[in-house]
Amino acid sequence: MKKHNFSAGPSILPQEVFEKASQAILDFDNTGLSLIEISHRSKEFVAVYNKAVALVKEILEVPSTHEVLFLQGGASTQFLMSAINLIKNDGGKAAYINTGSWSTKAAKEAKNFGEVIEVASSADTNHNYIPKGYEIPTDVDLVHFTSNNTIFGTQFQAYPETEAPLVADMSSDIFSKPVDVSKFGIIYAGAQKNLGPAGATLVIVKKDILGNTGRAIPSMLDYQVQIKGESMFNTPPVFAIYVSMLNLEYMKAQGGLKVIAKANEEKAAMLYQEIDNNPSFVNHVAKEDRSLMNVVFLLNDTSRDAEFLDACTAAGISNVKGHRSVGGFRASIYNAMPKESVQALINIMKKF
C-alpha cells in the first residue's frame, strides 16, 4: 500500500532525491567511499557545498548583497543568533510579531540581548489569523516574524514593511514560492520541510547589517565568522547539505519557484474546498491568512476523531493528527506532496 505522509516535519522529499541520497551513502561520486565518511574539506564535498549555495542563489534570486550559509542547530539556534548579531549592546531594541509558538520562542531568546517590543499578536484568538494594521517603531534594530505557522495553519501573504532589518523564520514555507530576498536582512529556515533532511539550517544574510552591535559574539554564533569560514568553521552537516543540494537540483528541473508555487496553490485549494463544502469539517483560520503548507481542520463532531484517524491509517494516510495546541487534524502539504496524496485524504473526508 502506498503511504501518504502528511508529517509537519521532518517531511517527505521527492523519491528521486531519496534514491540518489541512498546511493551516495554506499558510494559517493564513484569514490569508493560513503558520503558520510568523506572529509568535509575534500574537493568532492566542497563542490557539493558550492553547488548547493549556487542553487539557492539562483532559485531564490539572491542578490550579491547577501550571503548564503548552511549552519546547524535548527531555527531554534537562529532565534538567538539573529538577535545577538543585530541587537545593539547598549540600549538595543527589537520588534516581534507574535503569530504563535515559534515567534514566541524567538522573542524569548531575543530578550537576552535587548528590549523586545511585541508590535502585534494574534494570541487573542489562539493565533487563527495574521495581525494587520500595526505600527513598527523606527528605532528598532530588527523586525522579526514567522512567515508560516505550522501549528496554527496561518501564513503571511504580504510581508511587513520596515526600514529596520527584516528577519524572517521561513522554516516551513521556504522554496514554496518566489520571495524578494532583497527586502530581508536575514532569512533562516530549518531544512526539514521543503529543503532537505533535519540537520542543516539555511541562512541568507545581508552582509552590511553585520558587525554593528558593539558586543562580543561567540564565534559559532557570529555570522561574519561563518561567512568567512564558508559554513565550515566546524564540521558541517555533510549529509543534510548533500540531500539539500539534490533537492535544489530537483526544484530547478521542475521549472523553479513559479511552477512550484502554482502546484502548491492547487493542492491547497483542493483541500480547503473539501473542508469548506463538507459539513462534517471546519477550519477556523481567517480565509485570507490560510497556510498553503499546513492545513488545519476539525470534525464538528469531535467524538469521531479516533474513527477518522483509523480510517486514514487504513488508507495509508499518516501523520494527520493535529498539534495539541489546536487539536483536530493537520495536513502538511509541502512541495513534495503529490496531488494524489491530497486526493486520498479528501476521499476519506468525503466518507465522513
Results as ranks from 00 to 15, higher is better:
N30E: 14
S76P: 00
E115R: 12
L80T: 06
S42H: 05
G91M: 10
A123S: 13
H66W: 13
A120V: 07
L55I: 06
E58T: 14
G73W: 03
L71I: 07
E37S: 15
A75W: 02
E61S: 11
A110I: 15
S122I: 05
D29W: 09
L55E: 03
A94W: 04
A94G: 11
V56Q: 12
A75E: 10
K105Q: 15
N98Y: 12
Y49Q: 04
E115A: 08
W102D: 03
L33V: 01
T65N: 13
A110W: 06
T99N: 03
I25K: 09
A107R: 07
K43L: 10
S42G: 14
S34A: 12
K57H: 03
K111Y: 09
Q78H: 14
T65W: 04
V119D: 01
G32N: 09
L69I: 00
A83I: 03
R41N: 12
L86A: 12
E58M: 10
S64I: 04
S121W: 05
N89R: 12
I84K: 12
N98Q: 14
V48D: 05
V62R: 00
N50Q: 13
L33R: 10
A106D: 13
N112G: 01
A75M: 11
A47T: 00
K93C: 07
E67Q: 12
V48E: 07
N85L: 02
E58F: 11
S34L: 10
L69T: 06
A107P: 00
S122G: 07
G74D: 07
L80H: 04
G73H: 01
V68Q: 00
E118V: 15
S101G: 09
L55Y: 10
V46E: 06
A52I: 01
A106L: 11
N112T: 08
L33N: 09
S34D: 08
N98W: 11
G114Y: 06
S121F: 07
K43G: 08
L26D: 15
V62L: 03
A94V: 10
L33G: 06
L71G: 05
S42E: 05
N89Q: 12
S42N: 03
G32T: 09
N50P: 03
F45Q: 01
V46T: 03
S121E: 00
S22D: 13
A21P: 13
A107S: 09
E67D: 13
S22C: 11
T77H: 10
K93N: 04
F113S: 02
D90S: 15
S22F: 09
T104W: 00
S103H: 07
L69C: 00
A107N: 05
L35W: 08
V116F: 00
A107T: 01
I97F: 02
A54H: 07
F28A: 02
E61D: 11
A47F: 05
V56M: 05
E44K: 13
D90C: 13
T104P: 01
N89K: 14
I97N: 04
A24Y: 02
E61M: 09
N98K: 14
S101V: 15
L35S: 09
T31E: 14
N85H: 01
G114E: 05
E115K: 10
E109I: 06
G92D: 04
G74A: 04
K57G: 03
R41Q: 15
Q78D: 14
W102A: 09
A21G: 12
E37A: 14
